[in-house]
């Protein structure tokens, strides 16, 4: 008989793997991506492709030539970062800006902290916020939705619903348009239905738990509901809050990022409530019409603190 293998228990493993988890997230993103492609046409395809390719390429180059270690691009995490970054950009943004965003997301926000699992901030959001500060004009000139158009940077622009709701410019679209995604905005944030399909898929596959998305959405609904009831003139109604801007995209895909969210159910609830409150505060009282990205990044910073002080529900109490 050959030499036997000795190892500590357990001797079996579930078929979970990083690749499998990442694949599930990518599948969940497909409806959102397709909705973006439909409403923004060629521009959306170009932005998405450039973003994904440059994210994967930067990760490969950094691991190969800077860190001189093994490359892990096959695990799919760079693809997700690329997809999420693209979902957060307007579809008429010049591709070199996308490349810069990808460089920041992968190079600064992810790899400089030690790669997958060690980044304190969501790389895609960090990339997005970096671009928002660096190229405010390009980042806030949203194209009007025009199904299957072949225009890219020269697409006609308009205001996003949140800008319109705040009374700056433009008209507020109907709820149906909100649900399908026939509104202006970043290419992944417009279609509520597509995002919810992704959410259901991820919950079904147990890629994520319900805690973060539900706590964010409930908090936003309740908090904005209170404000709206108090003064309907000054504050936007909760329906619009939930459906407009990057709230759904953020709550489902960005806030649930493994590395940057708390690691137990109670912590996740605190984190979600925090994001919800900060989002509404920024939207209602801040200068920016949109606040989800900032809210998530701020709560990312609190994640280590939440992990330290909020522990999971233990089995059995401690007796003195």
């Amino acid at each position: 008989m050959d030499k036997l293998i000795i190892s500590p228990a357990p001797h079996v493993h579930s078929n979970n793997s990083i690749e499998k988890t990442m694949r599930q997230v990518i599948i969940a993103l497909i409806p959102t991506m397709l909705a973006g492609f439909y409403f923004f046409g060629l521009g959306a395809v170009i932005v998405t492709a450039v973003s994904v390719i440059s994210c994967v390429l930067f990760e490969y180059l950094i691991q190969r030539f800077l860190l001189k270690g093994p490359t892990t691009i096959s695990d799919g995490s760079a693809v997700i970062t690329g997809l999420l970054l693209a979902m957060n950009l307007p579809s008429n943004i010049p591709f070199w800006i996308v490349i810069l965003g990808a460089l920041f997301a992968i190079g600064v926000a992810k790899m400089s902290f030690g790669g997958l699992g060690n980044n304190p901030f969501n790389p895609a959001l960090a990339g997005r916020v970096f671009l928002l500060f660096s190229f405010p004009t390009q980042m806030t000139s949203w194209p009007e939705p025009s199904p299957l158009s072949l225009q890219y940077v020269d697409a006609a622009t308009g205001a996003t619903p949140l800008v319109a709701l705040k009374g700056y410019a433009g008209e507020v679209p109907s709820i149906l348009n909100f649900l399908t995604g026939n509104i202006g905005g970043s290419l992944g944030e417009v279609s509520a239905v597509a995002i919810i399909i992704g959410l259901i898929y991820m919950l079904w596959k147990r890629t994520i738990t319900w805690h973060i998305p539900v706590s964010i959405l409930v908090t936003v609904a309740v908090f904005s509901g209170i404000l709206h009831t108090a003064n309907p003139e000054a504050y936007i109604s909760p329906t619009y809050h939930l459906l407009s801007g990057g709230l759904l995209l953020g709550a489902v895909f960005m806030a649930t990022d493994y590395a940057t969210s708390p690691m137990n159910a109670r912590g996740m609830l605190v984190y979600g409530v925090g994001i919800g409150i900060i989002t509404v505060v920024i939207r209602e009282f801040g200068a920016y019409p949109e606040g989800v990205s900032f809210a998530i990044l701020i709560m990312n910073a609190f994640t280590p603190l939440i992990n330290t002080y909020i522990k999971p529900k233990r089995f059995g109490k401690i007796m003195k």
Binding site: I18, G117, Y258, N264, K311, P312, K313, F315
Partner: peptide
């Protein structure tokens, strides 16, 4: 690398 997915926390029967 640990991807901090918290699966281990969710499956631990002792919490």
């Amino acid at each position: 690398n640990c991807i901090r997915c918290a699966q281990c926390v969710f499956v631990c029967p002792i919490g």
